[in-house]
């Protein structure tokens, strides 16, 4: 029982201390916030920093006044964690560094510990409990910041991947109702599925009668991908369009044969230009030199 009472005592004393010294604590952390994120760094405005400091202290008091401030599953703890998570995202998106955020959180911790030193009534045991509590709490907050940092990095990588995919597979309407899809680089299953999805949607959108898929830039192909390629052709045909595959390199042709891929329902042509001629022929389009 005595052990259970200690954290309550420590947290209530900490709350009392915070309320007594809220002005000076807030001022100190605001000043440091201005140095790290304000002014020429231009990451947060003065009002934003002030609001942030006030909200942080409010959330901290709410946690200290909760039933069990040590409970990291409590809504108050979660609110504080989310608050730091969101602040980190905001700063990172604006080009801030995660190191500065971590230093700032450590500074806040130090400020609170310094404030403890001003309270002459606390016993050594109280101070120890408060220090332990603060160190546990701020470790968790630093973890929340790192989590936000990793999420942000992951999001950036995904966005870059998506952009790369889009630029690597440009679907172009080269003539009314004729789409071309030059595929460059290595085809893997996930990319093939994405290309297939984009192509089918484009056929529906543009009402394309023929699609020329050019594989000149494809260096190698495996069994799974070749099956996906055949599925792509089949899906295009099911939508009512003609699919023509062009530019199959000899090594790819050999790989397709050795993988026993049935190409009987697939129209192939040697080059992209032959593929286009075939598409035009099927659509009854004639392209000729201007008569002299």
């Amino acid at each position: 029982m005595a052990q259970q009472k200690k954290p309550e005592t420590a947290s209530s004393k900490l709350t009392e201390l915070l309320k007594l010294q809220v002005g000076s604590i807030s001022e100190t952390i605001e000043k440091e916030g201005q140095t790290l994120f304000g002014g020429s760094n231009n990451l947060l405005g003065t009002d934003e920093i002030n609001d942030f400091c006030i909200e942080f202290l409010q959330l901290l008091v709410a946690l200290l006044e909760s039933r069990d401030p040590h409970d990291d599953a409590s809504p108050q703890f979660h609110a504080l964690e989310m608050y730091f998570n969101n602040l980190s995202k905001q700063i990172l998106v604006r080009g801030g560094r995660v190191e500065d955020l971590v230093r700032y959180i450590q500074f806040m911790q130090r400020t609170l510990i310094d404030a403890l030193g001003n309270d002459k009534r606390s016993t050594v045991e109280d101070a120890r409990s408060m220090l332990l509590f603060l160190s546990g709490l701020f470790n968790e907050l630093i973890l929340a910041v790192f989590q936000a940092y990793l999420d942000e990095k992951e999001r950036t990588v995904y966005a870059q991947e998506a952009e790369l995919r889009e630029t690597a597979t440009p679907i172009t309407e080269i003539w009314d109702g004729v789409l071309t899809l030059p595929i460059i680089g290595t085809l893997d299953s996930s990319r093939t599925m994405l290309v297939m999805e984009a192509l089918l949607n484009r056929i529906a959108k543009d009402h394309a009668n023929a699609v020329v898929i050019d594989l000149t830039g494809v260096k190698n192909i495996d069994s799974q991908v070749s099956h996906h390629l055949i599925q792509m052709v089949r899906a295009v045909q099911l939508m009512g369009s003609d699919a023509i595959i062009t530019g199959i390199r000899p090594e790819i042709a050999r790989a397709l044969i050795s993988l026993n891929i049935d190409m009987s329902n697939v129209t192939t042509r040697a080059s992209l230009s032959d593929g286009l001629k075939e598409a035009f022929r099927r659509m009854g389009i004639q392209v000729s030199h201007k008569a002299a």
């Binding site: 297939m196 999805e197 089918l200 949607n201 056929i203 529906a204 599925q231 792509m232 089949r234 899906a235 295009v236 099911l238 939508m239 009512g240």
Partner: peptide, 14 residues
């Protein structure tokens, strides 16, 4: 069959 939706063609081709 006409107006086959991309999602339907995708699933059917599988």
């Amino acid at each position: 069959c006409i107006h086959m939706q991309p999602t339907a063609a995708f699933a059917l081709a599988q």
